[in-house]
Simulated assay, not measured.
Amino acid sequence: MTTVVLVADPPVEGIACQRLLEETELTPADGLELYRALLGDTMETLARSTIDILVNYPTAEGLPAGADPEADLREIAAEAMSADRLADVRFEPQVGSNFSAIAGNAITHLVRDEGRQSAAALRPCVPRLARSVVDEATLNLRRDDVILGPAARGDVYFAGFAEPIDFEDAFETRPIEELTRRATEADLDVGFVQQRTVLDSPADFRTVRSRIEADHLAGKPVPERFWNVIQERGIEVEDGVVQSAETA
């Protein structure tokens, strides 16, 4: 069975969705509510899949006084999952100085040290992540050594491995290329699943906002928590500017 490692940022106001806050008119409170909603939707999606879940939480070092990322993430998980499913979820602190090190350390430990069949790093900021995508990616890891989920600008939202590679700085610049290059150099087979948008920049938000609005109008499933926050906080795109009711 595949273990999916959810690599979380601190759900702390002013830090959550930081780039989006810097480049839009959204407030720190908007960013926090959006991120908590994204985490909740992602956790619920993972809970519906037949995988092992590991929540990789950041430590409180360097965060504002009183911040407790582990407690916050456990609270979000408890709301998103049944008690039985939550009981099987592992919560472990992140080890590493950047995303590459954190994801690489977790995957390598699970596959090499614990003997897991495969392990994958997942970014939580994927509003339209569906169970079918997770199931497809983890199922394909039985056939291919590496499965990648492409995102915009050469990024990835999912990176699964049946065999570890050299992860040093592998996620820092166009990871879809770099991870594939390192895997093939190690004689590993690489496969891909469908592209999804990682919510990072204003352009990402505009893309996601429009598509989810279209899904809603068409009566299709939408990420419930994320969509509710957008509605409740009045987050809109006006003349290309992302703003909320607090800043409009």
Rank of each mutant, 00 (worst) to 15 (best):
I53F: 03
S82D: 14
F99T: 13
A137K: 06
R74V: 09
V89K: 06
V89G: 09
E33G: 00
D113Q: 14
D144I: 00
E114C: 13
E136D: 09
T42C: 12
D135N: 12
L122I: 02
R143A: 15
A37F: 02
L141M: 04
R112N: 06
R142S: 13
V95T: 15
D84Q: 08
H109V: 00
A71N: 03
Y57A: 01
H109K: 12
V89F: 05
V95M: 08
A119F: 08
A80E: 12
L73W: 08
I147T: 10
E33L: 03
T108Q: 03
N140G: 14
D113T: 10
R74E: 12
N105K: 01
L122R: 06
A106I: 01
H109F: 04
R74F: 10
T42P: 08
D41E: 13
A130T: 11
L122K: 10
G104N: 10
A83Q: 09
T108N: 04
R85V: 14
V95Y: 07
A87Q: 03
I147G: 09
N140K: 11
V89P: 02
D88Q: 07
T45V: 15
A130E: 15
M43G: 08
R90W: 00
R116I: 01
L32R: 03
N140I: 04
E136F: 05
S132E: 15
F99R: 13
S97V: 03
L141D: 05
N105V: 08
L141F: 04
A106N: 08
R74M: 10
L38M: 10
Y57H: 05
L110D: 11
D135Q: 15
R36D: 11
L110S: 12
D144P: 00
V111Q: 02
R123F: 06
E136T: 11
D135V: 11
N105H: 12
G66N: 02
D113A: 12
L38Y: 14
R123M: 15
A77N: 09
A137L: 00
P58R: 08
D144R: 12
E61P: 04
L63C: 09
M43W: 07
S49A: 15
A137C: 09
G149M: 07
A121I: 04
R123C: 14
A103C: 01
V111N: 02
